[in-house]
Each structure stands twice: as C-alpha cells, then as structure tokens.
Design a protein around this nucleic acid. Sequence first.
DNA 1: TTGTATGCGTTATCAC
DNA 2: GTGATAACGCATACAA
Lengths: 325, 325
Amino acid sequence: MATIHDVAKKAGVSVTTVSRVLNNRGYISEKTRNNVFRTMEELNYQPNELARSLLRKQSNLIGLIIPNVSHPFFSELASYVEYYAYQQNSKVLLCNSHMDPVKEKEYIEMLKRNRVDGIIMGSHTLEVDEYRNLNSPIVTIDRQIDENIPFISSDNYRGGQLATELLIQKGCRKIAHICGNLKLNMLANQRTQAFEELTGRHNIEHVTIQTDMNVFDQKQYEHIIHTLLQEHPDVDGIFSTSDIIAAFAIKECVRAGKRIPEDVRIIGYDDVNAANWIVPEITTVKQPIEEIGRLAIELIRKQLEDESFERQNILPVKLIERATT
Amino acid sequence: MATIHDVAKKAGVSVTTVSRVLNNRGYISEKTRNNVFRTMEELNYQPNELARSLLRKQSNLIGLIIPNVSHPFFSELASYVEYYAYQQNSKVLLCNSHMDPVKEKEYIEMLKRNRVDGIIMGSHTLEVDEYRNLNSPIVTIDRQIDENIPFISSDNYRGGQLATELLIQKGCRKIAHICGNLKLNMLANQRTQAFEELTGRHNIEHVTIQTDMNVFDQKQYEHIIHTLLQEHPDVDGIFSTSDIIAAFAIKECVRAGKRIPEDVRIIGYDDVNAANWIVPEITTVKQPIEEIGRLAIELIRKQLEDESFERQNILPVKLIERATT
DNA sequence: TTGTATGCGTTATCAC
DNA sequence: GTGATAACGCATACAA
C-alpha cells in the first residue's frame, strides 16, 4: 500500500507538500495541488490513520462495551451509537462482555491499549474502583459510578411507577415483577423500588423475581416464568423489565391457557422494535434509545474537547399502551 | 499515559529490555524481568497498540459492514463475529451501511485508512468492481463478487426448496413469497428461484413480492403485507425471506381475522432468536449464523497468513418446524 | 544478558 | 510556496 513518500516521489515534491495538500494547510500553488491529487489517485493512496493517530494522540476510536449486541435493546443502542459516532468521524469498537467480569476487564484494557478516545460502558460487572482510575473519557449507561463519571439513564423510578400504576389502575389484584439482578447496583433497580412502593401503598399482593436480565438466556426466561405461573396461578398482572421477557411472559401465559389482557395484563420495558411486531403488541415503557446513544457520543466528545458537560443525565420515559394491558 | 521510555527510565534499563520483557523475547535475567514488570504495574503501563500496529503492519482490526445491527439477523451475526474475533485477539469495527452506497463506500475507505486486517462485507450496494480492487483480505456474506473473493452463504436454493415444499406438502393452494430486492444480485435470490420453480412445477398459484429486505423498515413490511392480503385474500401460504417479515405476516393475518396455521401457513427464514419467542412460534429455515460468523473470521485470518482457503462456502440449512405451519 | 540505532507513516517546526 | 528534519511509541538488527 502506497505511503506519503511514494506519492511525493512520484509527484516530484516533498512529503511535506503532500501532507499539506492532504490536510489543506498552508500555501500551495494550484498546480502543485492538482499534481499531487492526481498522483494520489493514480497510486490509490490512502493515508495511514494509525500513523496519524500515533502522532496526534487521538485515535477517533470509541469503545462500546455491552453485555451482548444480540439483545435487541443493545443492538438498537449500538446502531444509534454507531450512527452518531459516524457523524463526527469516529469509529466504534464493538465489545460484548457477556456479563463476564474477566472479559469486561480485558476489554477495558484492550481499549486503553488501543488508545480509544473514550469508552461507553453499558455492561457493569466490575467494582467501582476499576472504572474510576481508567482515566480515559468514559460514559456509563444505567449505572452511577461516582460524582465525576457522567452517566446516562432514563428515569427508571418514573418508569417503574408508570408501569405499576397502569396495572393497578386496570384492576390487577396480584402483580408479578420480573427484574434484573438487584445485586448489580444498576439504576434500573429503581424500577423495582417504585414497583414495591406502589404495590405496597395500594396494598396489592405482589411478587418480585430476579433474573440476569442482561444475559440473553431464553431458557432461563421460560423457566422463570413457567415457575412463576405455577407457584402463583392467581397472578393477573406482570411487569417485566424488558420487552423480551414480556414476550416470554406472553408465550407462557398463552401456553397456560390464559387470555391476554383479560386474564393477565403484561407490561414490558424499553420499547424495542420487537415490542411492535409481536402479537399481541406489547404495552411498554419507552426508553429513548436513540437519545441515549446520541448523548453517549456527545459526552465522550465533550470530555475530549474539555467542554463542560452534565454528570447526571436522566432522560424521560413514556408509557406506550398497546394490546397486552 | 506512560510510554515504554518511562518504564525503562524508572526501571533503570533500556527500552529494548522493556520491549523484550513485554514480548517475552530473547534472554532476560529473572531479576530484570521482575523489576520491569513491577515498574509497569506501578506506572499502570499499557503498550500503545497504535505504535505496534504501525510497526508490524497489522492492526488486529476487522471491519464488519452490515446494513444495520438493529436487524436481528445482523445483530446475531455481529455477536458471533465479535466472539470469534476476540478468540484470536482481533477487534471488530462496527459499520452500518444503512444500504446507502455512499456510506458503504466511505466505510470501505475508512477501513482501509485504518489498515484493518480484513473486511467482512454483509452489505452489498456497490458494483463488483468497487470490491475487486480493494486488495485487502475480504469475505462477503451472501454475495459472490468473483472467483477470487471468498464468500459465505448458506444453501439458499435448498432453503427455498425446503420452505416451499413444506407449504405445498401441507396443502397450500396459493402461496405468497416475500423476498428482498432481486436487483441486488444477492445469493439469497436463489430462494426465490427455488420457490418459483417448485410452485411452477407443482402448478401452484403463487405471487412474489419484493422488499428492501435489508432495510429494517417496519412500516414498509406492514404495508406490503396488508396490501398482499387485500389483493390476494385467498392466499393460504406465505414464505417470507426473514423471520421478522414473517412476524409481520402473522400480525397482519391476525388483524385480518385469519387463523394460523389453519387459514394461512407461514414460514420464515434465518431462525433468529425472535422466531422462538413470539407466539405462535415461527416455522423457519435455519441459517447457521454462528458458523457464518466463525468462518468469516477464519477466512480473514487465513488470507492474512497466506494459508489456503475455500472460495465457495455454502453452509447447510435446516428446516425448523414450529407452530405457524 | 543488555544497550544503541533505525524505521514504521505521518505531521509540525523551522528554514529557505 | 516548498523542503529537510524531528518526533509520536514501539520492535528489531546489530553491537557490546
């Protein structure tokens, strides 16, 4: 592959001149410029970004660490992150942690070795200290590490409220809530908090079940819900912490001969595309996935350019009522 | 961020020695080695991969260009690609072309400028010539560019056969087939070919409808299927070229008051996870997505290491019968 | 067993 | 307007 030296030699100028043409800097005669451009075409020259990055200490690479892109929420998030990264000429390095602390840590180190401009953390299996001193720009999604590290989340407490309120208002007498692993200290736990406060206040019977929500384990989902329906056959409302789990809840309810929403009302979370193309369409709490992705990129950029930025970014959620309630 | 010089200075050795410790090359006394390791720890040293890549002319970066990660087929593919890349210490650059030729071309050039080890092309909007002379290792998925560029696909013709045969065997009298854009010269078009040959041979009434399958446009799907059911109310079998489209077919059939599979039998394609968690579970033709991802990485590696490799990689498909037929 | 010098491809500084 | 040269951080050939 041609280098700047090849171009210079063939065009009969110095590398400095080629570099100037390339970066459109300094004074250059029109004739030289055209000559150089033509030569670059002829040699099919592509400047080596590795060399550039090394010199200017900026790779234009952004690391995205998530549990797994094959989960719809994260695939949509990744899509938006990539979209907005592209707008500012950044490239996205895709990292699936599979919720494995070892892999997550290795990925963080790999990203640092590659001198990424910043890291978007959508997976959180490590202790806070590990994140604190990796002094590269970072943004966390749905987890608050400390005062200085910006995070983005949607209003989880409000989301939990909206979901629970809807089920109560529809007349549910016994509500099950399926949430992620509460030990992980994610902001999403506030949904559960809201659920328990509201059901408690209204004196509604309720049961909370934890899963490793981020691990996309379909068998686990099926099993959990199957068990739930067996142990609590009188459940008439389910608030699940993702639309995918809600889909499994629908499936198990149908299998158990229950009608939706007549016998059981179900509400999901996220409003991923899938919520809209399954039957019955899932009532859900919409997270602004695009805005989360856009903001993540923006927060990385602002840290990089030493602009001021908001540490706490809590975005609004919205209740989307469809056919399952 | 500390450099190899900082480590050398602090440890009281030369950079060569540090480099040797780092790469475990040549003879080094145990004492020096430990000393250097300790110093690296103290300085929290991470070798700069950009510099390494520049020197050894290998970035360990692999570009993945797909229409959109938010489409389940591609999100699952991306997940496996990332998984197998990680196994061999490669990193994945995620590129969504959105089926935009301009963006696809820009991405290819960006990847070349970043000296990626290879490119996995899952999006195909350009003319063959554009791919031919980008002399970096490349693998295409579901499209054959020319003799020399390896491609991976599953056995599309066989898949089309399996799907069509099943519907015929189940007694369908009028079958609709929803496929991608046939102009794009993808290998997936062979599914349509098989469909038309088989329905023709069995003298079954049939209708074929094209979509931009790769663009994840839900409104388009709904509209197309809605129109289909209106114009051909007597359709009793639908073979759609992705599970997502099949999901929309289910939705529209239910909306039109048709029972599945009694009134209309539906078969999808891909066997993405979603096929399994919607109700009714979708009968489908399974593509070996994991194997496609694994092979893609392997083919890049083999080209890189000048090993011999297969140009034509056509993987077997499998009929998965579930509840929609 | 360890160190010195050179180059990877680029850009910035300074000189002409 | 243009060119020579040093540096970015690292690995290797060659010396010692």
